[in-house]
Design a protein around this nucleic acid. Structure first.
Length: 424
RNA sequence: AGAGGAGUGGCAGAGUGGUCGAAUGCGGCGGUCUUGAAAACCGUUGUACCGCAAGGUACCGGGGGUUCGAAUCCCUCCUCCUCUGCCA
């Protein structure tokens, strides 16, 4: 969430940023934030003064008791009763203001970076570059949902039986392909200096709030109500939360972690032809990269992560394009996001396979993730993350783009991981 | 899951109702000494909020309570350890 101080100090910038996001009634909301904060601070000052008085009386009583002047002590006691009530009231007021403030701040999205294009929807996203040759397939080309049946590598019906729609079962070479991709992605990231972690795939409420999935999107997550836990929608949640309430040393930057996890999304309200096959699932596999950086270095890191992801797509021989998301399409918590899309040649569509974002201090403020520099001052760090990569759509386009009469040719880079070079 | 024990500053570890934000040791930082280093010695060493400042307030696992006053007493939740049970 945004910091009140930054709203105060950069009011016009924040306002313009919210307008770029088409955030309604931005001015009213921001004024309200400052107003509540003002009241909160005034209440604190008042409360602290009374508390100080009360503390000093208590000390006096202590001294008097020690000296055996019980009567005098009793006399002063009566004075404290009044103060006590006042403090209680102020405390309640303070808590209310603070809660109100937090609730309000939760509704305000991150401020877009200046390079974020204005726009309302996906139509307005800016295509940064397009790379790779789009294959031309014959008339008999098949979409991946037919290919997986033909070669019996992924089974939706079976998954539906044991779990429900959107929970596929990977079989034989299909399962092997999953494992190969996961290992390939992890090896590549590790080679780039990312530290591999294996986090839990359920998280508590505090973690959900810290990275911004709560309170906004609880409907998107599967909830284990009996235990107050949520199935993660992305490894971003547990991996970033590793650093909740942590003060790192400036020398530790950049902190780079990579992790593979299954991801779970309820995707309530999504249906239709676009979600057929592997295009949208309730459970899918993803390798996620997360960086924590010095504020001065985060955009450098973002470019670095973007080109890293592009490198993966090149190695997989997939045609792709990079989009810079517009203000209206960007995620709530992001300041700048690149989406990577691969071309799926039988569906004849671009499919999003990665989203790389810089959150600046939006997450770290909730996380209380700070760093200490040589000057000993603590400052909020910047957090970034990106998919590297999400598997299902990668699989979809590998299957579709590489189909031949004799079977589906596998990208060379995967062959050592697969132990075969064709699915037939 | 049941029984018992424990959670204090970066770590270790005192403190069981009153100048305790907290002894002491280790570690860290600064200095003296030294050609340099070590040792020794001296000093310093948590976080957040309010305040122009002086200063103040809060925090001893989380939350609540008792009391003029709580690290210390009570309730509750969480976590860890030991034993028993169960189990990949």
């Amino acid at each position: 969430m945004l910091q009140v101080n930054s709203i105060k100090e950069n009011y016009q910038t924040v306002l313009a940023g919210l307008e770029k996001r088409n955030f309604p009634e931005a001015d009213t909301t921001l004024t309200q934030v400052l107003d509540i904060d003002q009241k909160r601070r005034e209440t604190q000052t008042e409360r602290d003064q009374l508390q100080a008085e009360s503390n000093s009386i208590s000390k006096q009583i202590g001294m008097l008791m020690k000296e055996g002047k019980k009567d005098e002590a009793e006399k002063i006691k009566s004075r404290t009763a009044e103060i006590k009530g006042l403090i209680k009231d102020l405390e309640n007021r303070y808590d209310e203001f603070e809660q109100e403030l937090t609730q309000l701040l939760y509704t305000i999205p991150n401020i877009p970076h200046e390079n974020v294009p204005a726009g309302k929807s996906a139509e307005d996203n800016e295509i940064v570059l397009e790379e790779g040759q789009i294959p031309t397939l014959g008339e008999d080309k098949m979409p991946h949902w037919d290919l997986i049946k033909k070669y019996d590598i992924i089974d939706f019906d079976l998954g539906a039986k044991i779990s429900g729609a959107g929970f596929p079962v990977y079989k034989g070479k299909g399962a092997r392909l999953q494992r190969a991709l996961i290992n390939f992605f992890l090896d590549e990231a590790t080679a780039q200096g990312y530290n591999e972690v294996q986090p839990p795939i359920v998280v508590n409420e505090a973690s959900g709030y810290a990275t911004g999935q709560l309170p906004d999107k609880e409907g998107q997550m599967y909830e284990i109500a009996a235990d107050g836990l949520f199935l993660i929608p992305t490894a971003e949640v547990p991996i970033t939360n590793l650093y909740r309430d942590v003060i790192v040393s400036e020398n530790d930057f950049p902190i780079k972690n990579v992790g593979f996890t299954p991801c779970f999304r309820r995707e309530a309200g999504s249906w239709g032809a676009h979600v057929r096959g592997l295009n949208r699932l309730h459970q899918f596999d993803k390798v996620e990269i997360v960086q924590i950086t010095h504020p001065d270095k985060s955009y450098e890191a973002l470019e670095d992560m973007s080109s890293y992801v592009q490198g993966l797509l090149k190695k997989l021989e997939l045609p792709y394009r990079v989009l810079r998301l517009c203000g209206g399409d960007m995620g709530f918590t992001s300041a700048l996001t690149y989406d990577m899309e691969v071309y799926s040649a039988a569906q004849e569509r671009w499919l999003e396979v990665s989203s790389v974002s810089n959150f600046e201090t939006y997450q770290s403020n909730r996380l209380k993730l700070r760093f200490k520099g040589d000057d000993k001052k603590t400052t909020l760090a910047h957090t970034l993350n990106g998919s590297a990569l999400a598997l299902p759509r990668i699989v979809a386009s590998i299957l579709e783009n590489n189909q031949t009469e004799n079977g589906i040719r596998m990208p060379k880079v995967l062959v050592p991981y697969l132990g075969f070079d064709i699915i037939d």
